[in-house]
Design a binder for these strands. Structure first.
Length: 263
DNA sequence: TGCCAGGCTGATA
DNA sequence: TATCAGCCTGGC
């Protein structure tokens, strides 16, 4: 079933390249996107998002793409005297912060550390193929229950390397209830970040990625090596977070994408 | 060959 | 409390 939805400031190619989602595959002029155990074919063009999905999944995808949020507001809020940020925001104006699955983001960003984007994508494919439910032609993302019973190095064949034990032990912490994901979903940003940091292998940066891309805490601002380099070059006096309270994480994505693709 | 990639843990002082 | 080695592995 095909649905056409008005969606300004939405460019799927930009979102795919921005590195917040690793399960977007180009197909038919758009992308096939997988989220946990759902899938959709999506095309974004001239302010319209065309989705090919089941009728009962439509509200899920509407939320997933964050269609209720006005991203024009974030664009306009950029300090006009900040030339670099203005350029970055304009360059990545089609980026939205997707509302992705919590467990999937935990695993994805555990895998991301000391890793590069093509390899991260490959690791996730391997993980889904080996441990995800067969959905008929593709595999769902494996839940914590599917991973908690494994040996700590069982995911080495999926090319996770030393991160294998991070994923398995985190799965155990979730399944045992030591870290209650339902509770984390209801927490404000600082508490959620601290709770996520209890997971083995989750530090400051990974916790912020999870808060931003799964929990939609737009205050979360992951600082990685790229962002740190940009800050050293462009904001030696410090990034003006106070000007962007409540949505600084959106700007982080503009900066990351601009740094990656804009030069 | 050596170094790095969207960090983190654990040891050490 | 701060610093730092070591970690899987593919690509350059």
């Amino acid at each position: 079933m095909t649905h056409r939805l008005p969606a300004d400031h939405l460019d799927l190619a930009q979102i795919a390249a921005s590195g917040q989602c690793f399960r977007m595959v180009p197909e038919g002029g758009g992308f096939v996107i997988r989220a946990a155990d759902r899938g959709v074919h999506a095309v974004s063009k001239e302010g319209i998002l065309t989705l090919d999905c089941r009728e009962e999944d439509l509200s899920f995808w509407r939320s997933y793409f964050d269609l209720e949020t006005d991203y024009g507001r974030f664009q306009e809020a950029v300090d006009p005297s900040d030339d670099y940020l203005k350029k970055a925001a304009a360059f990545g104006s089609g980026i939205r912060i997707l509302r992705q699955d919590l467990w999937e983001m935990i695993v994805t960003f555990l895998i991301s550390q000391q890793n590069n984007i093509p390899r991260i994508r490959k690791c996730i494919e391997n993980l889904c193929r080996e441990y995800g439910r067969d959905m008929g032609g593709w595999h769902a993302f494996p839940g914590p229950e599917a991973l908690a019973g494994l040996e700590e190095d069982a995911l080495m064949p999926c090319n996770l390397g030393y991160r294998s034990k991070y994923v398995v032990r985190s799965a155990r912490q979730v399944v045992s209830g030591e870290v209650d994901l339902d509770a984390v979903r209801k927490m404000p940003y600082p508490e959620a970040k601290e709770a996520l940091r209890q997971l083995f292998g989750v530090g400051d940066k990974v916790a912020d990625c999870i808060c931003l891309f799964a929990l939609h805490h737009l205050d979360a601002f992951p600082v990685d090596t790229h962002i740190r380099q940009v800050f050293e070059a462009r904001y030696p006096q410090g990034f003006p977070y106070e000007k962007y309270a409540g949505f600084a994480g959106v700007l982080q994505q503009y900066i990351f994408y601009y740094d990656l693709m804009g030069k």
